[in-house]
Simulated scan of single mutants.
Amino acid sequence: MVIRVLVAEDMHIVRGALVALLRLEPDIEVVSEVASGDEILPAARDSRTQVAIIDIDLPGKDGLTAATELHEQLPEVRTLILTSLGRPGTLRRALAAKVSGFLLKDAPAEKLANAVRGVAAGRRMVDGDLALAAWDTVECPLTPREIDVLRLTAEGRDTLEVAAKAFLSTGTVRNYLTTIVSKLNARNRVDAIRIAKESGWI
């Protein structure tokens, strides 16, 4: 049986390379290519995708948000997150988003094809080295609400915009950001964002 695959990657050269590699496999057919997270759900629905290969950093909806949306609205579609971010914290976020697989972009081509086959068969495929490293990571000290506030701030929103988006007062947002900076032992908000991103928490 041929596996119907969607590839979501905003870098054209990378997407082209992924598609070319997958088309060498006789049991895999690329049925859709998209460049933003917002396009994934409608494209998956229209093309009757079985496996969606999703870059974690996409314009519009990020890869994990899009994967969560797929899981909720098209539960039959399996998701394989492909990323250059080899950070265990990112793996934790991916697993929390109910993704079927997690693979680094620098993995060998045959590993990608095997991961596609594995998730299509209902298995969870996770990069072995990354899975082992995840055991040793420090748990995120931030609450889900603090993560939301920091993520909105990382998108370049000011305090007023974060407050409106998160349904909070501006004073509460400022208090959250002060707490976040303190919890992460950061110098300021920018440093807190850097720490959280490098740890895969946002």
Rank of each mutant, 00 (worst) to 15 (best):
Met1Cys: 11
Val2Met: 13
Val2Trp: 06
Val5Glu: 02
Met11Gly: 07
Met11Ser: 08
Ile13Gln: 14
Val14Asn: 04
Arg15Ser: 13
Gly16Asp: 12
Gly16Cys: 09
Val19Thr: 04
Leu21Arg: 03
Arg23Met: 00
Glu25Lys: 03
Glu25Phe: 00
Pro26Ser: 11
Asp27Lys: 11
Asp27Ile: 09
Ile28Thr: 05
Val30Tyr: 00
Val30Glu: 00
Val31Met: 09
Glu33Gln: 15
Glu33Leu: 09
Ser36Val: 13
Ser36Asp: 15
Ser36Glu: 13
Gly37Asp: 00
Asp38Gln: 10
Asp38Gly: 09
Ile40Phe: 06
Ala44Asn: 04
Ala44Gln: 04
Arg45Cys: 08
Asp46Pro: 03
Thr49Met: 03
Ala52Asn: 08
Ala52Thr: 10
Ile53Pro: 00
Pro59Asn: 09
Gly60Met: 13
Asp62Met: 07
Asp62Tyr: 07
Gly63Pro: 03
Gly63Glu: 01
Ala66His: 06
Leu70Asp: 02
His71Ala: 15
Pro75Arg: 06
Pro75Phe: 05
Glu76Tyr: 06
Thr79Gly: 02
Ile81Cys: 04
Thr83Arg: 09
Leu85Phe: 15
Leu85Trp: 12
Gly86Val: 13
Gly89Asp: 01
Thr90Ile: 07
Thr90Trp: 02
Ala94Asn: 02
Ala94His: 02
Ala94Val: 07
Ala94Thr: 06
Ala96Asn: 12
Ala96Val: 05
Lys98Val: 05
Val99Lys: 01
Phe102His: 11
Phe102Asp: 03
Asp106Val: 08
Asp106Pro: 15
Pro108Ser: 15
Ala109Leu: 02
Glu110Trp: 13
Glu110Asp: 14
Leu112Lys: 08
Ala115Leu: 01
Ala115Pro: 05
Val119Gly: 03
Ala121Ser: 15
Ala121Trp: 06
Gly122Cys: 12
Arg123Thr: 15
Met125Lys: 08
Val126His: 02
Val126Leu: 02
Val126Lys: 01
Asp129His: 10
Leu130Lys: 04
Ala134Asn: 05
Ala134Gln: 03
Glu139Asn: 14
Leu142Pro: 04
Thr143Pro: 02
Arg145Gln: 12
Arg145Trp: 06
Glu146Thr: 09
Asp148Leu: 05
Val149Pro: 03
Val149His: 06
Leu150Gly: 01
Arg151Ser: 10
Leu152Ala: 11
Ala154Leu: 07
Arg157Phe: 12
Arg157Asp: 06
Leu160Thr: 09
Leu160Asn: 10
Val162Pro: 01
Val162Lys: 04
Val162Gln: 04
Ala164Cys: 05
Ala164Val: 10
Ala164Lys: 13
Lys165Cys: 12
Lys165Tyr: 13
Leu168Val: 10
Leu168Trp: 09
Leu168Ser: 08
Thr172Asn: 14
Val173Cys: 04
Val173Leu: 05
Val173Asn: 03
Asn175Arg: 15
Tyr176Lys: 08
Val181Cys: 07
Arg187Pro: 01
Arg189Cys: 08
Val190Met: 14
Asp191Ser: 15
Ala192Ile: 12
Arg194His: 11
Ile195Trp: 03
Ile195Glu: 02
Lys197Met: 13
Gly200Phe: 00
Gly200Pro: 01
Ile202His: 01
